[in-house]
Design a binder for these strands. Structure first.
Length: 750
DNA sequence: GAGCACTGC
């Protein structure tokens, strides 16, 4: 690895005496990309807004254990700060700088860019780690990862000893994972200080280290402090305080500063072009019609440049595409043509790529997008943004545990993010289809996800991290008490928590290890005693992947016919198992017969098999990935993987023992009643049991649209509930009644 | 006879 050593040029003495960016002049290396490319990169780095602040930033990190960095779009904070810290010695002695991102793609692209800038190989000194993919090595010093991945690491190493600095990037997005990391890292900082203080007080060298178990890390900790023991007494020879840098793109830093005990905030200017904002004078009665008219108006009156229209969902995008095509046909003669490119997450990736293709000369591209274009991907060429000010967002009702999607107004921060999309390459314009008064009434920021989701997973992870008092956890925005209590109860019923509210061992401990919804993790663990763990493995993978079946509206009948060959009269779970069994036999099986597995060929076969069977290829691939990963965990725990073969009754009984909380019973009037909440529910038309009127079913999802629907069902014998979940159901009454639970122990951990 | 914003382990 010759390239590794060359980066040590960052650590030379020159840096200290100069205000300039600590970027070494381009140097030729083996496997070099070519001198001109290196010079180009160097030139780009030098002119970034953050470059002039390099020295100051490093000093701020040195002087503050927690630092808030507000960096506007285009400031270069994400790629540069990690390199500055590397150059300043924060990676010496085996320490790492960890940088979290909310999205997988971002972790990969940023790591790739930084490795290129540093002239090192990816997965060498610079690496990334995301689910299903670890591109790091023992040499890795700058580690980019998804926020969820760092959370997983904390389970194995609660003090995060490998890290000298953690940078939480895109903190303003407030993902559940980032929010949990906030509280967690505060705790780690405190505990790492305590470990140090211990040493300083009694001076006995081994005392502090005994809190930090594994032997091999002791040397590393020592090396840490030798590397940069700038602050603190000479006696502090143990774990360095963890430096935390919170990076955000929104200007409002106050919330972060307050939460991090008055942490200092620094601002870095961005490099955005001006965007002219236009609002309507009166509220629009029909925002879709307004969006349509505005799009055509911009096309007729404005200079060249592509248009980005934000819409709420697939259906709306499809409608708009149709309307726009119709109206475009009646444009005055000589008007340039338009090219419509829709994009939303569920769109097959080949069609997604169309938004990135430049329109032919003289043609204007109109992109119809969901909020996928707000942050997740950047489309080049956009000069005009049309923003109706609405978004489809998940709403969660903790009382009854129901999720639904609703169209709601965006926040001011989201409005700014949307308009910013017009100023990436040059001055732009944003047309907001709402009045200034309406804008002023919008919320400043979107309600953090942690306040609007099911917390079962979060609570389980916190318990696994040794945080027993979840209600007292230092959340930046605390979820409602009701939501926390609900998930504590849920975990207790699943057996993950003891009567005292502690994580049960081994059940709770094992459940927390799985990258699955707690109820799926439980099902996985229960399944080996029912001798159907292969089938449950497939089930939890397929359920985690969601929407395996692909039903385009125009081919509704064909899709339903294709599904027939997988359909099981027992329900959706076994139907999903049939899909995977068929795939394995018809695609992977035939590959093996032909000899060595050729991945390209397999991929091609998967695609054609999926399209002829109306299966969503992306979802199936994801299910296969999850299946492989979960299989690894199951085997790692020493659990046996057994198939029940054709004895699927055994499997249905296992589903009952696992998903007993979600049982529904047919009433005299033919409607269904969810047993644990008493709600009236209906079988979702996407289920294979729709119209079959089974007496008793289990379900995995409860969604509210026009009415309350249950999805992913299996028919069961109602007597199994009392037999397999006696702790929850009693047989005394004709109608099964859920038993009340005592909450005392759960809420006040001993 | 219905509808699935977007991420993540």
């Amino acid at each position: 690895m010759p390239s590794m050593a060359s980066t040590s040029t960052f650590e030379n003495g020159k840096r200290k005496s100069s205000d300039a960016l600590p970027v070494p002049r381009p140097k030729l290396m083996k496997n070099d990309l070519g001198g001109s490319r290196r010079r180009e990169i160097w030139e780009q780095r030098r002119t970034l807004p953050i470059a002039s602040a390099a020295k100051k930033l490093v000093k701020e990190v040195e002087n503050n254990d927690t630092l808030i960095v507000i960096g506007e779009t285009g400031s270069g904070k994400t790629t540069q700060l990690p390199q500055f810290l590397h150059a300043a010695g924060y990676c010496k002695g085996g320490s790492m700088v960890g940088i979290t991102q909310p999205r997988r793609v971002a972790a990969i692209t940023v790591a790739t860019r930084v490795s290129e800038e540093m002239g090192v190989q990816l997965s060498g000194e610079v690496g990334y780690s995301i689910r299903f993919e670890d591109a790091t090595s023992p040499q890795t010093r700058l580690k980019f990862m998804t926020d969820g991945m760092l959370l997983r690491e904390a389970l194995l190493d609660p003090l995060l000893r490998k890290y000298s600095v953690i940078i939480l990037d895109e903190a303003h997005e407030r993902t559940v994972h980032t929010d949990v990391l906030f509280g967690l890292l505060k705790g780690v900082q405190k505990r790492r200080r305590e470990v140090r203080a211990d040493v300083e007080v009694d001076g006995k060298t081994e005392q502090g280290a005994s809190m930090v178990k594994p032997l091999e890390n002791r040397t590393q900790i020592k090396l840490d402090s030798e590397a940069h023991g700038s602050n603190g007494s000479s006696k502090s020879r143990r774990l360095k305080v963890l430096k935390v840098v919170v990076m955000s793109a929104t200007l409002d830093a106050q919330g972060f500063c307050e939460y991090f005990d008055g942490a200092k905030a620094v601002y870095i200017q961005g490099r955005q072009h001006p965007v002219q904002i236009m609002n309507t004078y009166t509220p629009e009665a029909d925002y879709l019609d307004a969006a349509l008219i505005t799009t055509l108006q911009v096309h007729l009156e404005e200079a060249p440049g592509d248009i980005l229209v934000f819409l709420t969902g697939q259906e709306e995008i499809e409608n708009m595409e149709r309307l726009l095509t119709e109206r475009a046909a009646f444009l005055p003669e000589g008007t340039p043509k338009i090219l419509i490119a829709p994009i939303y997450a569920a769109l097959p990736s080949e069609q997604q790529m169309r938004v990135f293709e430049p329109a032919p000369t003289g043609v204007r591209k109109v992109i119809l997008a969901t909020n996928i274009a707000e942050t997740s991907l950047t489309i080049p060429g956009i000069r005009y943004v049309i923003d109706p000010g609405l978004v489809k967002a998940k709403v969660y009702n903790p009382r009854i545990g129901v999720e639904s999607l609703a169209v709601v107004p965006i926040s001011k921060a989201q409005a700014a993010q949307r308009s910013g999309r017009a100023g990436r390459e040059g001055p732009g314009k944003c047309f907001r289809l709402y009045t200034v008064e309406t804008f002023n009434k919008l919320e400043e920021a979107t309600v953090p996800e942690i306040k609007r989701c099911n917390l079962a997973n979060v609570v389980l992870q916190l318990k696994a991290l040794g945080i027993d008092d979840v209600l007292g956890f230092d959340f930046m925005d605390k979820p409602s008490r009701a939501a926390i209590v609900k998930s504590l109860e849920h975990l207790y019923i699943l057996g993950a928590l003891t009567d005292e509210g502690k994580l049960s061992d081994p059940l709770g401990v094992q459940m927390a290890r799985f990258p699955l919804e707690p109820v799926y993790a439980k099902a996985m663990l229960v399944s080996s005693s029912f001798r159907c763990s292969e089938e449950m493995l497939t089930t939890v993978a397929m359920l985690s992947a969601e929407s395996i079946f692909f039903t385009p509206r125009e081919k509704f009948k064909e899709a339903n016919a294709a599904r027939q060959r997988f359909t099981s009269p027992e329900g959706d779970h076994i139907t999903l198992i049939n899909v995977l069994r068929a795939y394995t036999q018809e695609v992977e099986g035939s590959q093996r017969i032909e000899g060595e597995v050729n991945h390209k060929k397999l991929e091609k076969k998967l695609r054609s098999w999926c399209s002829s069977n109306f299966i969503n290829g992306r979802s199936l691939r994801r299910a296969l990935d999850i299946r492989r990963q979960v299989r690894g965990y199951v085997e790692g725990m020493g659990l046996e993987l057994i198939s029940c073969g054709d004895d699927l009754n055994q499997f249905r009984r296992c589903l009952t023992a696992s998903f007993f909380l979600n049982a529904a019973h047919k009433q005299a009037d033919g409607k269904y009643r969810a047993l644990s909440t008493g709600q009236t529910v209906a079988i979702h038309p996407s289920s294979v049991l729709f119209g079959k009127k089974p007496d008793c079913v289990l379900f995995n999802e409860l969604v509210r649209t026009n009415q309350q629907y249950i999805r992913s069902l299996t028919r069961i014998d109602s007597l199994w509930l009392a037999e397999l979940a006696p702790q929850y159901y009693s047989t005394r009454d004709l109608v099964y009644a859920a038993r009340p639970l005592s909450q005392e122990g759960l809420l006040k951990p001993h």
